[in-house]
Design a binder for these strands. Structure first.
Lengths: 197, 197
DNA sequence: CTTTCGACTTACCGATCGGTAAGTCGATAC
DNA sequence: GTATCGACTTACCGATCGGTAAGTCGAAAG
């Protein structure tokens, strides 16, 4: 709605994101990305100088969406702090379920940035984690715990959400789509049990 | 102890595992693996016909260790079924913390096998998941729940364990090693809260 | 002493990679 | 009408990839 005509750069980002998410940085060539748009790889090099720059733009795109989740949660009216945590849990779950590519790419980043570490890339994650922990700490169930316990519980939640989101295809192959659909339906309540009692 | 002289093949597997875990299938060349042993890539091709075969052997190696966890848990004496689940939780946590490369590679497999899917590779995972869910279902806390809920809770646990295990380096970069050490110490109790009340 | 054989190596191959350089081409500005 | 410019394309490059083919070489077997 806001962008009826996405810019050329954005089109490349949108095309590259699911490819990087599914096959990883080294598993995707510039020709692959350009080919999907029926262009040549040189068009990418024209807009982004290098492959790394394209990848960085994709990561930035996801970071923006993660920030969006936090903004929505923090802007929501909530008399009680536990309502805000509950909204956070639901929005995180819904986002990763509806955009599993985001979860896939974030997870790959987590795995890859041992090597290809640019310090800047981690600060969006830091802000996200810090705000998440703060939300957790504001809930009566966790308020009395130590910071380490609060952080552990937060990361336990985030890990569960992302891991389940990236496991969809494999679980479907193992158990079939129908059963996975049932598990998916049971997942949010199970998460809320853990986080907001 | 059992293998004071690991076979040549096993040496390649042991060398390749952390490389694949850290950089992924496409991020590691045969020359990289062989170079660490001061051999040429041809020596790998001699022992394993293709790169895929080497990778498959590495996955098999991990599958064996996962089976080992289940075997230990199932063989342990336990009057009450909840003791067995508790042992499972502790062993899984300890294994993934002490061998984060295993968690890293399993997670990469989960991400990659959209493309490079050999059906055989998933059945070790199926057995592992099925036994895990069965352990969960045997515990009073979960016995009354539906199969979907039991599975969701199981996968929530596994996801949290693996995700935390692969996040070590990133979390250390964000918060520093000391704080991550505290979080690590708080993680197992938090897991047990969720799984075995 | 010779043969065999497992465990390698050197030499080489075609394909593909990211990236450079130098155009092409339609739309807009003046 | 011409100059400019953004958005591409074609042509090409060196490096690296996985894999084939054909040796080499020390130890064990006869």
């Amino acid at each position: 709605m806001l962008k009826p005509v996405p810019s050329a750069k954005q089109k490349f980002i949108d095309t590259a994101l699911p490819l990087f998410a599914d096959r990883g940085y080294f598993g995707v060539s510039l020709a692959d990305v350009a080919g999907e748009l029926k262009l040549t790889k040189q068009s990418i090099i024209y807009h982004f100088r290098t492959k790394d720059a394209l990848y960085g733009a994709v990561i930035e795109d996801i970071a923006t969406r993660l920030d969006g989740i936090l903004d929505v949660v923090m802007a929501a009216p909530a008399e009680r702090p536990q309502d805000r945590l509950d909204l956070y849990v639901r929005n995180m779950h819904d986002h990763m379920q509806s955009k599993p590519q985001d979860a896939r790419l974030i997870t790959r980043e987590l795995l890859d940035n041992l090597d290809r570490t640019e310090t800047g890339k981690r600060w969006y994650l830091k802000r996200f984690l810090d705000v998440s922990v703060a939300l957790m700490a504001g809930h009566p169930k966790w308020a009395g715990k130590s910071p380490a316990e609060q952080t552990a519980a937060t990361y336990q939640f985030i890990g569960a959400v992302c891991y389940f989101a990236i496991s969809g295809p494999t679980l479907s192959a193992i158990w079939g789509k129908d059963r996975v659909q049932e598990i998916r339906a049971a997942f949010l309540p199970t998460l809320r049990d853990q986080v907001v009692s």
